[in-house]
Amino acid sequence: MKFSVIITLKKDVLDPQGKVVQQTLQNMGMDSLRNLRQGKYFEIEINELDEDKAKNIIEQMCEKLLVNLIIEDYKIKKL
């Protein structure tokens, strides 16, 4: 079973990399750009057929290693 995990910085955490990317895009003339935040993306395949169990395992992976819960949020999606 395959899942995606998207990790983003929490709202009140400064994202200097995202800010620079945003400014660059705006300098390139992308005037409608209002806000940009940079994050991380993982694709994870696991040997588990039960979707709930599988999700649970991915959640553990997130909480124990992939995500720093103090500054980051995550979203899991089945692919």
Binding site: V13, L14, P16, Q17, N68, I71
Partner: peptide, 16 residues
């Protein structure tokens, strides 16, 4: 910080 022995986080330097 990553072990949790100390709390908080160390982010990228503000000026990148």
């Amino acid at each position: 910080i990553e072990t949790g022995l100390l709390s908080g986080a160390l982010l990228r330097n503000k000026n990148l």
